[in-house]
Design a protein around this nucleic acid. Structure first.
Lengths: 203, 203
DNA sequence: TTTTTTTATTGAACACCGTTCATTATATTT
DNA sequence: AAATATAATGAACGGTGTTCAATAAAAAAA
């Protein structure tokens, strides 16, 4: 009676095929500019088929967001736990900036795009591995506070500061509000800027 | 021969009527969800008429963005030049945060939305009063650096830090990525967070 | 193997969107 | 009053996400 199992497998495979095509198109052309029709055409199926595997475009986005968070968490594994905590924090920031620059469209989907709040309201515990990344940052900031290596007493406030700072410069850049900085290499500029920032709040 | 003058006046008035309706709708329903048809219907004109006064939807957005920047610059006039520079900087941040919270949709149009880059590419010197706001911040940071009241040596880097930080926390909040902070009053939380930030980089 | 039932796929149709442009209505000039 | 110039219209175009009756394919039953 392996038919049911095979069918389930096939369903997952089909989901994978759709997600693969959608990811590629979202990442090159952006979420808004990628139409369901175009995805369907790319995988050589009809429009309706996609709605057999995903309830709507937002759900596809959600899966791709989770892929992005997973990738990011993976990147964080490169960090060396033996490093001095301030250096560790700097390296964390560099990886975040690097991720954003190397995967601008992913970053957009994950942190800037408007859609997901509709998604959030749909099911409650939706952020998934997005929360893992935040909890990781929080744990780093807790260590900074405990070791009194930072001019902050509340790890939450410190996390908001670090994340807010990183997100701010990146979001301004991705959404083209940084034309006033005449830097050629924005990535390096941001890394330098983040290091200065960390140095200034570190003790 | 006052006919030409009257016609010009009427043209401007019509532009005003369209902009007023568009502003109200953009600010309540958002840019994407407001259709040209809906604007036309609101002012009781046909779709085509709008295209007699604005070349496209993006141009309407641009006018509204400028209104937003003008409002923001006006808000900054509340600042007291006699204040201690660090306190002055804090107050600047409070006004920025207040503006963002009181005019979330304006803020979205001005700093987060994707459209404008197409606009930017259309005409070169497009930012207008957006640049005024940035230059103002830059001048404040220059004073901070000159008076050695801040742990930064480059005013540009310091401006990026302040603006990036403010934008980061606000953008995360507006685009609903702040669910992990269980604060009830986010505005106060952000103001507190900004003050702590300024204190930590001030000397 | 043939028939019936279940499952998977299709694509036209719906209600929207921004934008254009030939046609019509209004205002100005001759 | 007729001719010209300006302003306003709204159907039409090609696009969007989404739905659903009709069809094709696969599995189960006879």
């Amino acid at each position: 009676m392996g038919i049911k199992e095979r069918k389930e497998r096939e369903k997952l495979e089909m989901k994978e095929i759709i997600l693969k095509a959608a990811t590629e198109m979202f990442l090159t052309q952006g979420y808004e500019k990628t139409s369901i029709r175009a995805i369907a055409s790319k995988i050589e199926y009809s429009v309706g088929t996609i709605y057999l595997y995903f309830q709507d475009k937002t759900e596809i986005l959600h899966y791709i967001m989770q892929q992005g968070f997973a990738q990011m968490n993976k990147d964080f594994e490169k960090l060396d736990t033996n490093d001095d905590i301030i250096f560790y924090l700097k390296r964390l920031g560099h990886i975040y900036i690097e991720f954003a620059f190397d995967n601008q469209e992913y970053y957009d989907l994950m942190f800037i795009i408007k859609k997901p709040l509709e998604l959030i309201n749909r099911k409650k515990e939706q952020w998934g591995s997005g929360l893992i990344a935040y909890d990781f940052l929080l744990s780093v900031m807790k260590r900074c506070v405990e070791q009194k290596r930072i001019r902050y007493e509340d790890p939450e406030l410190a996390s908001l500061a670090i994340w807010g700072y990183l997100h701010g410069i990146i979001a301004l850049h991705i959404r083209d509000r940084c034309k006033m900085f005449e830097e050629v290499n924005m990535k390096d500029f941001f890394i330098r800027s983040f290091d200065t920032f960390v140095d200034s709040i570190a003790t």
